[in-house]
Design a binder for these strands. Structure first.
Length: 302
DNA sequence: ATCCAGGAACTGT
DNA sequence: ACAGTTCATGGA
């Protein structure tokens, strides 16, 4: 990771194959999102490091990413963690050279890899947030999923107001672990979603489940198996979390409806492809299934 | 009304 | 191991 810190502004130097503008477009597509906002080309996000609330104002000049701190500059050690956070959020640890090589020789990926060149997987570094968001999104339309998330965040998350705007933090697992099913049902969570999410919060709170532990596991298979053993986490959710939180470029939520629709749209099919057909198409994508999926999601409805 | 949505657990074979 | 059923609620 390369970055500079002049005491007030962080300057982060991303690897090649990164386009901040493309990432901003993706971040702006999610209507109803409460965990970040975009204004005048700047991305704003509230995070918490060592019990300190830090508002990030993130911009870019094509050579680097600049991070400013509108509500006050955090300590030097905290600024270092901010740099880590940005690095993870935009998946900057990934070398995309190979992905673009793969895409160049693939009929489905070639056009979208070109169109969205420099787009990276926008990650969800916090494991509890990644799992909760995935569970929320199971089998409901995205519009409603964002609605549920908004209610959840505004009911149980922490916030600050700056310049007339409210910035929210995702609720902590400690807080959610204490809730009853009924608390979440009030927000129109189904009984199952409420059970799953409170269960995940409990597992993280008492240490049975942690990002560190998952990252220590040897390979894709072990991590996937470990995730699927959690109640409420099936194959789709495990792959989603591995791609959005654990940085596995080979994670592949193959049953995803959005993926199916995107392939249908890209190829001009009459109906959605079957899983078997997708498996065949994805042979070319080996090792980069997560990026293929992400670019296909990006291509939806354009 | 009807079908579907960025699925998963449960049940029966 | 695998297929069918149930859950659950809003969007279009």
């Amino acid at each position: 990771m390369r970055w500079l810190d002049d005491g007030s502004t962080l300057e982060i130097f991303p690897p090649k194959e990164f386009d901040f503008g493309e990432c901003l477009v993706f971040l702006g597509k999610s209507e109803g999102e409460v965990l970040h906002s975009i204004k005048d080309g700047y991305l704003y996000k509230l995070i918490k490091i060592d019990d300190e609330l830090i508002l990030l104002k993130i911009g870019s000049n094509n050579y680097s990413i600049q991070v400013e701190f509108p509500i006050g500059t955090p300590s030097e050690t905290a600024r270092e963690e901010v740099a880590d956070y940005i690095w993870e959020w935009f998946d900057l640890g990934q070398n995309l050279e190979e992905f673009y090589e793969v895409a160049r020789n693939d009929a489905i990926l070639a056009p979208i890899a070109n169109t969205y060149y420099g787009l990276r997987i926008i990650c969800i570094p916090d494991l509890f947030e990644a799992l909760t968001w995935a569970i929320l999104g199971q089998q409901i339309n995205l519009t409603f999923a964002y609605k549920l998330k908004k209610r959840f965040v505004e009911q149980y998350g922490e916030s600050i107001t700056y310049d007339g705007q409210i910035f929210w933090l995702f609720p902590t697992h400690e807080k959610i672990a204490e809730l009853d099913i009924e608390d979440l049902k009030k927000l129109q969570f189904s009984t199952r979603k409420a059970e799953y999410i409170i269960g995940v919060a409990g597992a993280i709170s008492d240490g049975r489940l942690s990002k560190e532990k998952l990252l220590q596991l040897k390979d894709y298979r072990q991590v996937h198996q470990s995730l699927v053993s959690i109640r409420g986490v099936g194959a789709w959710t495990a792959d989603y979390v591995m791609m959005k939180c654990l940085h596995y470029p080979s994670a592949f939520p193959i049953a995803d409806v959005g993926l199916h629709n995107a392939i249908k749209q890209q190829l001009g099919l009459e109906s959605k492809p079957t899983i078997d057909e997708i498996e065949t198409m994805a042979i070319n994508w080996k090792g980069w299934e997560a990026y293929a999926t992400f670019y296909l999601w990006r291509s939806l409805d354009e």
